[in-house]
Design a protein around this nucleic acid. Sequence first.
DNA 1: CATAGTACCGTAAACGTTTACGGAAATCAG
DNA 2: CTGATTTCCGTAAACGTTTACGGTACTATG
Lengths: 349, 349
Amino acid sequence: MKGIRRLAQHLDISIGTVSRALNGRPDVNEDTRKRVLEAAVELGYVPNQSGRSLRQGTTNTIGLMMESSAQTVENSDNFFMGVVDGAQSVFARHQLDLILLPCSTDEDPNAYLQRIVARRLVDAMIISATRKIDKRIDMLEKAKIPFIALGRSESGHNPPWLDLDFEGVASRAIDRLVGRGHRRIAIAVPHNEANLGYIFLDGYKQALARHGLAFDPDLVTRTSSSEQGGYFAADELLRSGKQPTAILLIYEVMAIGLYRRLAEAGIHAGRDFAVIGFRESPQSRFLSPPLTCFRLSLRDLGIALAESLLASMPSFKHHYPQTPAHRIWPMELVEGESDAFELPVKNQA
Amino acid sequence: MKGIRRLAQHLDISIGTVSRALNGRPDVNEDTRKRVLEAAVELGYVPNQSGRSLRQGTTNTIGLMMESSAQTVENSDNFFMGVVDGAQSVFARHQLDLILLPCSTDEDPNAYLQRIVARRLVDAMIISATRKIDKRIDMLEKAKIPFIALGRSESGHNPPWLDLDFEGVASRAIDRLVGRGHRRIAIAVPHNEANLGYIFLDGYKQALARHGLAFDPDLVTRTSSSEQGGYFAADELLRSGKQPTAILLIYEVMAIGLYRRLAEAGIHAGRDFAVIGFRESPQSRFLSPPLTCFRLSLRDLGIALAESLLASMPSFKHHYPQTPAHRIWPMELVEGESDAFELPVKNQA
DNA sequence: CATAGTACCGTAAACGTTTACGGAAATCAG
DNA sequence: CTGATTTCCGTAAACGTTTACGGTACTATG
């Protein structure tokens, strides 16, 4: 005898009552409930998830899909862990477990998600690294699985998403640099088709236009999100002959490689050349010079994601206010020393 | 009509045959099998996992537990993703899905794992950040869940594990430093009770002894695995008055903060002071100076983990040779410039 | 042609839960 | 005291699969 039957037998009670007691149903005597609860911990009984899922059609599990390919693997340092921790604190309130679903580099992300969804492993999904056109969104809509995207997209019918404020950051960074005399400002964006690249670039272009500066494609460098990417970005710009005096980095890890390449050319970041990173990372303040960048609370971001998702799930929506379908997450400037100088007028040509 | 019944009806065939066809059973006509397979993709049928699990008592899912607290969150950059990618490539061969189970900072790791196991979410587990005494191991043994630990432990009955070569690295690093004239070599280990700290320290002590050098507790600094940890470690050593001339870092991210603090004191890493890191990270070669450290293939590590685990699972063991219960993963020296100098004799006092 | 064997397929039970339904005992209203 | 209501609990069906078992039609064997 196993499972709930064992517990029922041990208490000399029916399995129905045991189940009701454990699930907090009202129609069970409080004394019996207490007995059941105690016996459950005593015998170490926890309901088998397959049984519950089969009966209820629900798994009490939320999935967060992450792609090991693309940006993620190179750039994931702590990002996901921070978000996950925040999200979990919300899900835990409803006995929901968050599991991370890593799509391996060998597998097609769409096929992967399709499989997960069809197997009904999860009740709802958080997807990340969303693309401008993302088939995963169409699929999730079709399968009627509640979901939220971390990263905006144009697929589907107005899907809910939450995204970082790429435009805002690019815009403010440009304002800052222009204010200090810079005119030829480079920008580093991902070399793949990642959505954030376009958005970041848009913010950059618009800010330039606002200041009456021309957009020069030669000042756009496409790189991988790694230290090496930063190294090559600097290398490319140095060779280009365009002589930029500043750069915006979409991935802050690039700063290390960039600093290095500049140093090799005798250029001193923070004195001869300004650098602004996108997101603050633990290392930002320990670089030489400390990197000017933008801060956000990953934990709060995770909480917001989780709450938005729950607000769209029939069983939980009454707990949460309806949130706007799209949210741009604000980021706060952290002043470092990597851009803390006025550009001499002779260089402003 | 849904699920397998729908498919059966559509084909005018019994559900038993459909199931057999899909599961590759021998007693089904090859023509029917083909028809079933085709109809399955046409109707987009994928067996409901709860149904299968309930019937078979197996979930086709392997869990990898990671703790967001402790080392992980601060130090996880790419480490897990690399391992996961390797492990997945093995599991995929057997239609097993690997899911990541993040234990939140708010929850007790033992209770968390207990719950996951009792719910029968997974067929087997990989646990990480193993402690010297780790109750998770006793629990998994008791629950008879196949598992392997990433990190050695003394709990349980000779549990299978795989671990990095902390002793070997410490030992080789000391040899190198001593060979270049260093006598007062500091070491940075985690400030928490993490197992790896003791092991790393042991290797360090033994190597010192081998060279006839005394162990000085003042040269041991306990830090967090972060840039900030490196900064404070350097700070502490500078204040101690012990004047070490070299340091071994268990977490390579510390190098950034350490370099910075040294620079603030007018000390030039790689010229006046030698630094050796434990594991190579993407940034190692872009630091100034590039960090001498030790390399391993995360992907291969993941593959080894997965294969060892499968070798211990009844349903798969015939595919895999029995591996030794314990394995120390070798690491290969990567020469940087952070220790590339001979210590002047006057400093060797 | 009779028999044995084989190839294929349908039926139904089982996995561990939850929950609709109905019933017994207790309580309440009059 | 009777009838109505409430409180609590047991019974059994249902969720979607897999698989043991048995049966039918065909093939091979003598």
